[in-house]
Simulated assay, not measured.
Amino acid sequence: MKILKVSIIIIIFLVGASALILYSFYEYNNKEEKTLTTVNRKNIEGSFIKLSNGVTHYQLEGPANGEVVILVHGFSVPYYIWDGTYEFLVKNGYKVLRYDMYGRGYSDRPDVAYDKELYNTQLLDLISGLKLQGHVNLAGISFGGQMITNFTCQHPGLINKVILIDPAYENEKPVAPKYFTLFNEAVNSDQRAWGQLDDFLYPRKHPEWVKRYLPQMRYKGFRNALVSTMYDYDQNGRQSNTCLNSTNKPVLLIWGKKDKTVPFRFSDSIRSVLKVDFFPVDDAAHLPSIEKPDTVNNKILSFLKQG
């Protein structure tokens, strides 16, 4: 009996000690130490608008009567991913909008499911709230390409042309329970930040990339937004692209030939069901608009001017 009691005490002690170690490890690595507020946003470049699910950070420039182009970023890098392309299109007479999706950058992090409805509603609210006139052109990179594909299927009457840059194809949900993935994101936050360099073919050419990524990680809700998207954003690549094809919108598909994030071979899967103007980019990985800006931006401009 004494041996049993001692064994139970030892087990309880080990469980408690393990829990304490895990908690300490979590707190040490957890970067989410602030709540995003108006004060935090005071000196942030860009503008803010209150939408149905929270405040959205955006930038909108160009002539009042200019043709509208909306730039949608990827899974976790906020709207600065469009640096260069944004300025280029404004310079060429377009009215250009870029924004941070909920949970990213300096937009709110609502405690909701990050599913198709949330992302589509945010974009629809922006178009309405900013009173963008006429049919808009949508450009999406990586996850943003996936998102605008689904948005166009849901709201084809609002859209003129679609531009997809290395678009995400399938969402494979993690097999682990959500709480485990949340913990993993917390204790491996540095890996999440430094992993963004994998999107480049020549990461050494972008020494400031990780530094620019880190500030958004300090605000509570960033990690939850990413993890919820992993679990709650349902996506069937073939089905979505078949749907986009049925809308009969002109589509430009741009892809870096050396992409390892969303491998180049997925371009074949998309083109098997979606009619596109296909533009493969040599010597570029997942972000050809950054690695080959002149080549990609001029192609985008040419595509927008057609017809």
Rank of each mutant, 00 (worst) to 15 (best):
L20C: 08
P288M: 15
L201T: 09
D199A: 13
D259I: 11
I127L: 13
D294Y: 12
L252F: 08
M230Q: 14
K178R: 12
I127C: 05
G145A: 11
S189G: 12
I81H: 00
W82H: 06
S246F: 04
E32A: 02
Y114V: 01
K220Q: 12
F183A: 03
V90P: 00
V15T: 06
K299D: 01
T295I: 14
L123R: 01
D268S: 13
V68C: 03
A186R: 02
I8E: 04
N236G: 05
F200Y: 10
L89M: 08
N184S: 15
F88H: 10
D282L: 08
G237E: 11
P177W: 03
K292G: 05
Y114P: 04
F48H: 06
Q235R: 07
E208Y: 13
H155W: 07
L60M: 13
E291P: 03
I163G: 00
Q154R: 14
S24Q: 09
V112L: 14
T37L: 04
R204L: 14
Y119T: 03
Q154Y: 04
R98W: 06
I9R: 09
D190F: 11
V96H: 00
Y179A: 02
N92D: 10
D199S: 13
N65K: 14
L89H: 06
K305M: 09
R212A: 10
S76H: 09
Y80Q: 04
P207W: 08
G74N: 09
S272L: 07
R204D: 13
V69F: 03
G256H: 07
P293R: 05
Q133T: 08
I127A: 04
T85N: 00
N53G: 09
N65V: 07
S289D: 14
A19E: 05
Y233S: 06
A17G: 10
V15N: 02
V72C: 05
I165Q: 02
F75M: 08
Y58W: 06
N40E: 15
L182P: 01
K2M: 14
P250S: 09
K42W: 11
N29K: 07
R204S: 13
V77A: 09
I3W: 13
D108K: 12
I21D: 00
P250K: 14
K34R: 11
N43L: 14
D100M: 07
N236M: 10
K42Y: 11
K178T: 08
P63Y: 10
Q191G: 07
Q154M: 10
